[in-house]
């Protein structure tokens, strides 16, 4: 249980670190990085709640959700990067 708590709290800290950087930074790429750290924090909370000690089987449902989340996160990142690039091109023209 203590392990789960350690990682869940780490997830909370990571999430809020990401929120803080999103609020403080101005440029798009650092914000994107911050959002990805936010996502990692949420995933960590999910997986730590699925963990119930080394002897019990873990809960596969949050694992599957996080796996889905990982792929969605990278899709969103790719789209944001493409939009960022287009914005730069338009600013240069």
């Amino acid at each position: 249980m203590t392990q789960a708590l350690i990682y869940a709290l780490t997830g909370a800290v990571l999430f809020m670190l990401g929120v803080r950087a999103t609020l403080l930074r101005d440029a798009l790429l650092p914000r994107l990085l911050a959002l990805n750290v936010c996502g990692a924090g949420v995933f960590l909370i999910f997986v730590s709640l699925a963990y119930r000690g080394d002897s019990l089987p873990v809960d596969p449902v949050p694992h599957a959700l996080v796996l889905t989340g990982l792929v969605v996160a990278i899709s969103a990142t790719a789209l944001a990067l493409a939009l960022n690039r287009r914005l730069r091109e338009m600013a240069d023209e």
Binding site: Y51, L67, L70
Partner: peptide
């Protein structure tokens, strides 16, 4: 891997670290 989620460990190494990093 520590939290007994090897599926996620594989995905994170390939997607979260590898491909996100390459895209960024």
């Amino acid at each position: 891997a520590r939290l007994l989620a090897p599926d996620l460990a594989l995905a994170e190494a390939a997607i979260g670290a590898g491909l996100s990093g390459a895209l960024l």
